[in-house]
Design a binder for these strands. Sequence first.
DNA 1: TATGCGAGTCTTGTATACAAGATGTGCACA
DNA 2: TGTGCACATCTTGTATACAAGACTCGCATA
Lengths: 225, 225
Amino acid sequence: MKDNEAAEKPEEYMPLREVVFLTLRRQILRGELKPGERLMEIALANRLGVSRTPIREAIRKLEHDGLVVMIPRRGAHVAEITRQELCDVLEVRKSLDVLAIRKANEFMTGKDLKNLRAAGEAFAVLVTQKNADLSMLGEADEHFHEMIYQGTGNRRLIQILGNLREQMYRFRVEYLKDKDIRQTLVEEHDAIVEALEKRDVEEAVRMIELHIDNQYSAINRALDQ
Amino acid sequence: MKDNEAAEKPEEYMPLREVVFLTLRRQILRGELKPGERLMEIALANRLGVSRTPIREAIRKLEHDGLVVMIPRRGAHVAEITRQELCDVLEVRKSLDVLAIRKANEFMTGKDLKNLRAAGEAFAVLVTQKNADLSMLGEADEHFHEMIYQGTGNRRLIQILGNLREQMYRFRVEYLKDKDIRQTLVEEHDAIVEALEKRDVEEAVRMIELHIDNQYSAINRALDQ
DNA sequence: TATGCGAGTCTTGTATACAAGATGTGCACA
DNA sequence: TGTGCACATCTTGTATACAAGACTCGCATA
């Protein structure tokens, strides 16, 4: 996604609206800004030390990403995520992740697969560490999946899947707390990599489906508490 | 999508940014604003009789929809659509349309199916008319598919598919010119409705896949000219 | 006590002013 | 003639001013 690209090149000029956008997004995804919380332009502008203009433009982008909801003349608030919406997102994601695996199987080179395996192992190493930072774990997991997406060569698919995954970051911290789940994730990643290495696409598809289904159960369990 | 909802309720207050957004979007989709054309804020503001503020916010939304591309400090221009991107979009759409058909088969009631059949027939009637308006044809076709999407009950899926279809409106006028293609569309719609009525989901999936594949070929042929 | 009205305040919507980077042009100089 | 630099202009980025709708809260009245 373009915003991530921007974040990867800190030497480049970045408009304030991008900075504000990234800041607010991070705060929403981390739960520092809670669902339902009002986003008042003047308050945000004062807090971030900018004027209302970049705040407003950042909010437009957040709205588009589904992270905030706007009501005309009444302002913006952080979007609530209902269980139904989570279910909807995961259903779409499952379908597209299957497409991604098929395309990745088609296009990823041996070198790509080596990098993917490395990404899976990097995540596994973090899982073995007792006091690993949850947000680092999340990023490592994200990196693994992002490599598969990149392997598809379909930019639109990459963009949509990135966006859908983003919706779930808000739950990530919750379900990553469970250590059993972490170990399961490692094993599933491994199974995916192995299937791709064997070019056994149907097995890879089964594994990614299982991976998403498990994620669904895990998040639902976390929500039940 | 929320913008369409806004358009459906003209009695409601609509911020200028929405008006500008809808205006520019229509002009881009209709080809009145051509790919690569620069969108200069002051010029647009003068032309539409508003200030730069709503223009800027509308451009942010268009950027998000992929209809315009922004380069920091250099402004926005109408996005080019390459054949590769078209291919990418259709690939994602095919995957999600299959999901939509499966969900629609699961959730659409007999009444929903009757409405769907009516929508298919409305399109068919327009096709028989010799001098039918292309944009009306396009809207009827859109309506047919939208009904399937609505039948899924998955709001996220509806939103994403709506967005993807939008990307193709820019080609719609081209490929709908071909009268043979119109007849093919009618037959395919019919086959989809019948399969759903018989609750033969695998047949419905085959038909929607064929439908998208044919659309892909048709647009590619139109582009070749 | 409950309800309705209204002034004051808060917040968003829109316009405009100002700052600074990007571009284009013409002239000087090699 | 070609290259490069400086200045003028254009355009976007950001801040601020002003307009108008939405909300709050208290008071008056039934």
